[in-house]
Write a protein that binds this DNA or RNA. Structure first.
Length: 380
DNA sequence: TTATAAATATGTACCACACGAGGTC
DNA sequence: TCGACCTCGTGTGGTACATATTTAT
């Protein structure tokens, strides 16, 4: 849907005509924007440039808007499963009432170590592409590589702490929470973690959590397109994977008190994560977004808990897996006997019919057949 | 660009009746 | 305490229909 709307917004031009070209190679279409370099980069150049040095690997990058492919994405539309810049978000979601109801999540540049750090406990070389498809970036450590090849649910499990964090943020700020519409996976077993955070940050000054000024009326209660496993498994899975990386990456930052003042752990669902342990970018001015949009770059710091112990985390992941295994999306049959009866029960146009009615119907149709007419085929 | 119609997708009500659950004797 | 009996509400699946969404003109 988004693509169609995007074409509508941009006059039906394809990305090849309109997309911004990589500032480095000048050939490929850019996929992300590096704030530190103020450059739009394709995936290849981004990978090449930002792994040359630890300094470069810390650059914050953001994915480029999927609609116009010319500006950094500011929102993730959950309904369209697309990241959009402020302009496209406004254009697309103001086009019609239904689109206005789409739930959008602000995409924030979360500091993290995209290319992995020696201290990173989990693989971090995975980023979310603009289409929601994650792309693994090489240069992983052996342990990371081993982890990354585990079952998919491991990736998903690895992501839950951040979901939790997001939920916690939502609890602290209703305005933010509305973006998520309460869709945090219950199976992520967040309560404990939340309570932990509640205790940990009960003294947090709420004033630091400035409400985001985004049309609450428009986004409020709607969950137009809830996360569906069957719809785009890759996207969901990769979201989880990425979120996990973000969590760990941002956690590194928050473990470093010096960086707290200028970092935002609020999860974007669609941004590459680059750690920001230096203060070099603190002074980077960000243009103030138009009124009515979220100021992505001046968001107040949101605290993160100290790092969980590996055993603690493993236990939580195991518990999550158990719950996940127990999930059942298919219809559950409580009484097999009733099912058997229902399957053998006579029907008329799909409805259960009295056996007497069925007999009469059968007699009627058989009579027609005997008379040489076109018999009525019973639907049972 | 907008409006309208057509096509497609999704959700739900409907039906009869065997049977489980609970109460009574 | 246990078994027999009774009553009532629930659950079951295929279809039609209503509604929502997308696509075409």
């Amino acid at each position: 849907m988004l693509k169609e709307k995007s074409r509508g917004v941009h006059g039906g031009n394809t990305s090849s005509h309109w997309a911004r070209i990589c500032d480095t190679c000048q050939s490929a279409v850019c996929t992300m924007y590096c704030r530190a370099d103020s450059a739009y980069l394709c995936t290849g150049c981004d990978s090449r440039i930002h792994r040359t040095s630890p300094e470069a690997s810390r650059h914050q990058r953001m994915w480029v808007c999927e609609a116009c492919e010319r500006a950094p994405a500011a929102f993730l539309c959950k309904a369209d499963a697309a990241s959009l810049c402020i302009t496209c978000d406004s254009d697309i979601h103001s086009a019609q009432p239904l689109a206005r109801r789409h739930q959008r999540v602000p995409i924030l540049p979360i500091p993290g170590m995209l290319c992995g750090t020696p201290s990173a406990p989990y693989p971090s070389g995975l980023v979310m592409g603009p289409t929601g498809v994650a792309a693994k970036i090489e240069f992983l450590t052996q342990d990371e590589d081993q982890t990354i090849h585990e079952e998919e649910d491991e990736d998903e499990a690895a992501s839950w702490p951040l979901f939790n964090h997001v939920k916690n943020i939502c609890n602290q700020s209703n305005n933010i929470g509305r973006f998520f519409g309460g869709e945090v996976d219950e199976y992520l077993d967040l309560d404990e973690y939340n309570s932990y955070q509640d205790n940990q940050f009960s003294n947090q000054d709420n004033n630091q959590l400035q409400p985001y000024d985004v049309s609450q009326k428009s986004y409020g209660s709607d969950n137009v397109v809830p996360i569906q496993y069957g719809k785009s498994k890759d996207q969901i899975h990769n979201h989880g994977f990425q979120l996990g990386r973000e969590y760990e990456a941002s956690k590194n930052v928050y473990d470093n008190p010096a960086s707290i003042s200028h970092t935002v752990s609020f999860s974007s669902l669609d941004v590459g994560v680059v750690p920001e342990s230096t203060t070099s970018e603190v002074s980077v001015p960000h243009p103030r977004p138009p009124k009515g949009t979220i100021d992505l770059f001046s968001s107040p710091p949101i605290p993160m808990p100290t790092q969980l112990s590996p055993m603690d985390r493993e236990a939580r992941v195991l518990r999550y897996r158990e719950k996940k295994k127990a999930r059942k999306f298919e219809k559950t049959i409580r009484y097999a006997s009733r099912k058997a009866y229902a399957e053998t029960r006579p029907r008329i146009k799909g409805r259960f019919a009295k056996r007497t009615d069925v007999r009469a119907n059968q007699m009627f149709s058989s009579t027609l057949i005997e008379e040489g007419g076109y018999g009525i085929v019973p639907s049972f």
